[in-house]
């Protein structure tokens, strides 16, 4: 280690000042949402200006906004819808993409290159680009305003296939061959050897799929905006439009919507990072 010169110290101070400032920029809105949702309705904008300690630290705390949101305005329904849509997509998404990834990594079959190119092509198509034409397809399939319409298009995804393929390719091929020689079927090999080996990738893919479904807005807006199938993103935006002055409930709906993914994110963030680093850039 070389000695720290004064200019090093100044650089270090600038570096940390910037990092702290940026962290505040990111955290302040989240903190503000939580704090506002816990305030009595009359206090929410009482201390908004000029800025004082009271703007950021409430005098009184109450859960009234949450009670009202769930009991009076039925916010449990969209929460349940979203949970269901996420759960089903995650389960089938992991299974189907893992199987395809396994096939592309380990099984030799004709036209494999062609199909894999197709998978890569679909990776480059962002969902927004196909949302409008997809609506006409789902309309013709009579699936508008069903949860199936939200689940089906989100299951198969080139990125996750890629993720599983990369992870399976890293396991030695001899494992596959020796199991094959002992007469195990491909299902057996997949279920008993490869699937357990890819547990971290399964968590990563599951987390990515869950975030994607929880956060999606445009597709539910087009395909499922009826109140009985509404997901949480639509519900919070509709709530804000309909009850523009119920600030307590609006903040509570935002807090519910961001708290669930955050609760998964903090303990599992290293899996999220794993998913990102395994998918993006290889090959």
């Amino acid at each position: 280690m070389r000695k720290k010169t004064p200019s090093d110290m100044i650089l270090l101070v600038i570096k940390y000042a910037f990092m702290v400032a940026y962290a505040i920029f990111l955290l302040l809105p989240v903190y503000y949402a939580f704090v506002s949702s816990l305030r009595p309705a009359s206090d929410i904008f009482k201390y908004a200006a000029p800025l004082s300690l009271r703007t950021l630290v409430p005098e009184k705390y109450t859960l009234e906004s949450f009670r009202s949101l769930f009991v009076d305005y039925g916010f449990l329904m969209p929460l349940w819808n979203t949970a269901w849509v996420c759960f089903v997509t995650v389960v089938f998404g992991i299974l189907i993409n893992a199987m395809a990834g396994f096939a592309f990594a380990k099984i030799r079959f004709r036209t494999k290159t062609f199909w894999f190119t197709l998978v890569i092509v679909t990776m480059m198509i962002p969902f927004e680009a196909i949302a409008i034409p997809l609506y006409s397809l789902v309309y013709n399939l009579n699936l508008v305003n069903t949860r199936t319409a939200l689940i089906l298009p989100a299951i198969a995804n080139g990125t996750y296939i890629f993720l599983f393929k990369n992870s399976y390719e890293d396991t030695p091929h001899s494992l596959y061959e020796s199991a094959m020689l002992e007469g195990a079927s491909k299902f057996m090999i997949f279920r008993r050897i490869y699937l357990p080996l890819s547990k971290p990738i399964m968590v990563s893919a599951g987390l990515l799929i869950f975030f994607y479904q929880w956060q999606s807005y445009m597709w539910p807006l087009l395909a499922a905006n009826a109140s009985n199938v509404q997901v949480i993103q639509i519900a919070q935006s509709v709530f804000q439009q309909e009850y523009a002055t119920l600030w307590g409930e609006i903040f509570a709906s935002i807090v519910v919507t961001i708290a669930v993914p955050l609760a998964f994110f903090f303990p599992l963030q290293k899996y999220y990072k794993l998913g990102i680093s395994t998918s993006g850039m290889k090959e």
């Binding site: 998978v119 680009a129 196909i130 198969a156």
Partner: peptide, 26 residues
């Protein structure tokens, strides 16, 4: 061969129906 199909067909079918087809439709 059937096993291989079971592994790849669900994913590829869903990708073709819900990703490729809408692009072509557009």
């Amino acid at each position: 061969g059937i096993e291989t199909l079971v592994f790849v067909v669900p994913a590829l079918l869903l990708l073709i129906i819900f990703k490729i087809y809408p692009i072509l439709l557009s």
